[in-house]
């Protein structure tokens, strides 16, 4: 099926499953990955992204076309993720960075040189993934949308349905909190006694 998105939306509104599957194909991987970054767990991400897709199918009649379909899809995704994390009340996990072989050896950056390469290692990425889970959902979603997926302020404002000023201040705050988490785990070569 090779219809324009608008046509697929129209058919999906009438319950056409094939059309809906074609429509959601462009978004499902991003939905799954946002859920994964928000929960830090593949199985949870699987459950949430399936739920998101079903919700989109169920409520597609309510999509009025005021925003792009993608914005609407990611708004539902963000909301379902945040709601799920709130429900569980277990969104703050113990701070551990481990792999099957034991603890990661996080490279301690040279305080004087601070080469960017020092922060681009696989280990740092893994540390960020885990430190992200220490943040409250409302800040976590900012890092996910802005720094992992590179959405613009305006797009985030539409996705989360909050004003631009709030978006900017929350992004600033979220980055500061993430940096603090990394520093607290001595992951950036700073004083671990802070936490």
């Amino acid at each position: 099926m090779n219809y324009p998105e608008k046509e697929l939306v129209r058919k999906s509104r009438n319950g056409d499953i094939e059309a809906f599957e074609s429509l959601i194909q462009s978004y499902e991987k991003r939905i799954f990955n946002i859920a994964y970054r928000m929960t830090g767990d593949r199985e949870d991400a699987y459950d949430i992204s399936q739920e998101v897709c079903i919700k989109i199918y169920k409520f597609i009649k309510k999509f009025r076309g005021d925003s792009s379909f993608g914005t609407w899809v990611y708004r539902i995704t963000s909301n379902v993720c945040i709601d799920e994390l709130r429900k569980r009340k277990a969104n703050v996990i113990p701070f551990t960075i481990t792999n099957p072989e034991g603890e990661y050896e996080i490279p301690v950056a040279d305080r004087d040189k601070l080469p960017d390469e020092a922060y681009e290692s696989k280990e740092l990425s893994e540390a960020i993934r885990l430190c992200l889970l220490q943040l409250e959902p409302k800040y976590r979603v900012m890092i996910v949308l802005k720094d992992i997926y590179g959405y613009k302020y305006e797009e985030i404002s539409k996705i989360l349905n909050i004003n631009m000023g709030t978006v900017k201040s929350r992004i600033n705050r979220a980055r500061k909190l993430l940096k603090d988490e990394l520093e607290a785990g001595n992951l950036l070569g700073t004083n671990p006694s802070k936490k």
Binding site: L114, D116, E120, I128, L188
Partner: peptide
């Protein structure tokens, strides 16, 4: 630090 974190 912040810049490196965002790049990562």
């Amino acid at each position: 630090i912040m810049n490196a974190m965002i790049v990562s």
